[in-house]
Amino acid sequence: MSVIETRDLTYTYPGVTKPSIEEVSVTINKGDFVILTGPSGCGKTTLCRCFNGLIPHFYNGDLEGKIEVAGLNVVDHQIHQIARHVGLVFQNPENQLFALSVEKDVAFGLENFAMPRDEMRKRVDWALQMAGISELSERPPHELSGGQQQRVAIASVLAMQPDIMVLDEPTSFLDPVGAEKIFEVINELNKKLGITIILVEHRLDLAAKYANHVIVMNKGKIALTGSPREIFTSEEARLIGVGIPKATKLYQHLKKHGIRLKAVPVTTEETADLLREILKND
């Protein structure tokens, strides 16, 4: 069952002539973990803004084609209506937290929904726990590390219990350890709660293993879409400059030299297992 469906979506920001995304048609299914990747400036952020109605309601501009998210026609619904179904986590953790304590930030969306205080308290505590930051609840967000801030941002979206979570390069300001933690949290949300994830990411080495669907954009268009293994081994992905995981690169390198692993690995662990198998057989 699809939760996001776009048909020939074309969008031009106000005051510019060239569309930032062109004829984008994607289908994303319920429970998917999607990685959206592509060179910088290819329109990933723009597409994310379409998913929760920031485009066209916040940015205006010219939107053509069809887009339906969680059964709602985005053009006909206001952002706060769509926000009940889609949560957006942005790139810069600093500029999406504005309260003076973590729990207050997490409660922001629920306050907007006018949720009664007792219920809100439960939801906030639950979201903090899911994001693994219960002990930070009273700290001021701006004094936390980037990784902690980004987990607060995730909790503040999670508290609204969305069906879909869109994360736009949530780790680009973080170190690898912080990034890894974020991916683990996101993966839990996907596997345990069944939230559909759309993750915009360059660091495929760390993130690829969680995904079941990869979409590659290039110059405002959808260039490739398919399973991680299909995409990472395709020649087009390499030419576009997708950050193919090192494990998959090693697979291709070995293949060129006549060594065929049984499957296409995405992680180091998989590669190690496959190599061990081959070495045993020799």
């Binding site: 920031l54 706060h80 926000a83 907007n112 929904f113 006018a114 609204m160």
Partner: peptide, 10 residues
């Protein structure tokens, strides 16, 4: 943008 996404004015 972030406030709008978290249902400001709902």
């Amino acid at each position: 943008e972030s406030m709008e996404s978290r249902a400001w004015g709902a």
